[in-house]
Design a protein around this nucleic acid. Structure first.
Lengths: 268, 268
DNA sequence: ACAATTAAGTGTACGTCATACACAGTTGAG
DNA sequence: CTCAACTGTGTATGACGTACACTTAATTGT
C-alpha cells in the first residue's frame, strides 16, 4: 500500500540491480564473509578462462570455497548474476571526447575500444540482455558513442539507430569469431586453420553452376588470406577484418550528413 | 590407412551432416518409423512456439510420442540437431537476380528477406554456429547476397567482408528485439511498453551532467516514438528501424565503389 | 547483561537436462 | 531358417538451478 504494488516492470528491477539501489543499510545478522562483488568477480574469472558455459552456480561456489546455496545470499538468481557480470565486463572507460571535434576519428576510436573489450570477454556477447544497456559502465559507453554520432550532425534519433547498428556489427562479429575459436580449441587447431578447413569443406559442395559467386570466392582464396600481413595484434578472425566495413559505414554517415547540410537538416 | 585417419576436421563433419552425406544405403533392421526430418521439424515447431530454450531432447520426444533416447537414432547429439535446425530454418529461397542490374535494390531486397526470415525464427540467431554457413539453404542465401555485392563493383574479398557485416547487423538486431520480446512476454506487456519502461528506468539514473547526450535522447523521447506511423508490419522493435542504417551502409559502399572507378579499381 | 530478532552460510532435496549402456523386438541377407 | 544389423525402450548417471529448513553469529531493545 506504500509504494510497491505494481510488478515493478522488470526494467526498474534491472536498474536497481545494476546501480546497487537494492542494498539495505547495515543489518543485524553475522557479517557477510562473501560479497556480491566477489561472486561476480569469480564468475567472470571462470568465464574468461573457460567460457560462459563453464559458469554454473556450483562452479562459482567451489572456486570461492563456499557452498552453492551461499551465493543466493548475494545474488537472486543466476540470471541476475549474468546481468551483473555483463555490466562489470564493461569497466574500462570509453575514449574521452576529442579536443579537435573530429567525429570520424572519435567513432573509430570508440569502435576499436568496444571491439577490444568484447574480444577480451567474448562471453559477454552471448548472454541475453533484455534491451539496451542500463548499468553504469554500459551507459558510459553508450554516452561516448552517442556523443560522437551526434557530433557528426546526425539528429539524436538517427544517432541512436546508428549506434545500435554499430554495436550489432561489433557484437555479432565477435560472436562469430568466438564460435570459430571455440571450434578451433575443440579440435586443437587455430583460427587460421579453421578458416582453411572451412574453404576445404565448401569446395566439396560448391559448384560453379549453383554457387558461381561463392566458387569465385574460393578460387581467389579469400578465406585463406587474412593472416598474411598486418599489425601484430591480428588473430586471423573475422574481427580483424572489421576496419574496412566500419569505414564504409562512416562514409555512409558522412555522405548523409553532408547531403543534409544546407537543405535545412538531414531529416528529409 | 585408406581415407579417414585424421579426426575429420569438424568442418568436414558439418558439411556431411548438412548435405546428408552420412546416410548409409537401405539397411537391414526394422523400418524406421521416425526420421531425421521429422525430428528436426518437431524441434523447430517447439522453438517457434516457445523459444529455443524450450527445445530439449525430452520435449521433442514427448511431442512426437517417442522416448527421449529414440531421437539419438536419427541425430548424434543435441548440438547436431541445432545445426540441422539452423539450416532448415533458412528454407525460403533468397530473392532471385534482378533483370535490371540494380545492385542497391537487390541488396535491399536481400536484407529485407533475410530480416524477415530471422524475425520469423528469432531463435535461429541464438544458436552457436561454428562459422559461416555450410548448409544448402545457408549457402543459397550467401550466394545471393554475395552476387549483389560483387555486382556493385566490389572485389570479392571486400564483398565477403560487407556480407559478414550486413549479416551481423541483421542478426544482432533481431537478437536484441527477441530478447526484448522475451522480457515483454515475461511481464505480460508489449514491445512498445518495454521501450517505454526502458526510458522510465533510464530517467532514474541519467543525469545531464554525467550523460548529456543520453539525457538529450530522453528529452526528445526518441525511444517512445517508433510505433507512431509507418507500414502495418511494424512491431515496434529495433528491427523496424533498420532501413535507415542499411541505407547508410549502402551509401558507404556506393561512395567507395564510385571513388575507385577510373583509378584502376577500388583496392587502394 | 540478556533475550529477541534477523541475517549468513549449510545441507538436503527436487525436477530437469544430455546422454551412456544394455536390452527387446523387427527386418532383410545369406 | 539363421544370423547380423538396426530401431526403439528402459534404466541409470552426473550436472544443473533453486526451494526450504536448519545452525550459528551478530545486533538491537530491554
Amino acid at each position: 500500500m506504500t509504494t510497491d504494488d505494481a510488478p515493478e516492470s522488470r526494467m526498474t528491477r534491472e536498474v536497481e540491480l545494476l546501480w546497487g539501489l537494492d542494498a539495505s543499510p547495515p543489518r543485524r545478522g553475522p557479517k557477510p564473509r562473501l560479497s556480491r562483488e566477489v561472486v561476480i568477480g569469480a564468475a567472470i574469472a571462470i568465464a574468461d578462462a573457460e567460457g560462459i558455459e563453464a559458469v554454473s552456480m556450483q562452479r562459482v561456489a567451489k572456486e570461492l570455497g563456499y557452498t552453492t546455496m551461499s551465493l543466493y545470499r548475494h545474488v537472486d538468481s543466476k540470471e541476475d548474476l549474468l546481468v551483473l557480470m555483463l555490466d562489470t565486463a564493461m569497466d574500462a572507460p570509453p575514449p574521452p571526447p576529442r579536443s579537435d571535434g573530429d567525429w570520424r576519428a572519435g567513432l573509430e576510436e570508440w569502435c576499436r575500444g568496444a571491439l577490444e573489450l568484447y574480444r577480451a570477454r567474448p562471453w559477454s556477447v552471448r548472454v541475453a540482455s533484455s534491451g539496451p544497456p542500463v548499468g553504469p559502465n554500459g551507459l558510459r559507453w553508450m554516452e561516448a558513442g552517442l556523443r560522437e554520432l551526434v557530433g557528426s550532425g546526425l539528429p539524436v534519433g538517427e544517432a541512436v539507430q546508428m549506434l545500435v547498428l554499430l554495436s550489432a556489427v561489433l557484437r555479432d562479429t565477435v560472436r562469430l569469431e568466438a564460435d570459430m575459436s571455440r571450434a578451433a580449441r575443440a579440435t586443437g587447431t587455430t583460427l587460421v586453420e579453421i578458416e582453411h578447413d572451412y574453404s576445404v569443406g565448401l569446395r566439396r559442395v560448391v559448384t560453379a553452376e549453383e554457387f558461381p559467386t561463392i566458387a569465385l570466392m574460393l578460387e581467389e582464396q579469400v578465406l585463406e588470406q587474412g593472416s598474411g600481413a598486418g599489425p601484430p595484434d591480428r588473430v586471423g578472425g573475422p574481427a580483424d577484418e572489421l576496419e574496412f566495413g566500419i569505414r564504409r559505414i562512416l562514409d555512409g554517415i558522412e555522405a548523409y550528413v553532408r547531403a543534409g547540410e544546407g537543405t535545412g537538416g538531414p531529416s528529409s
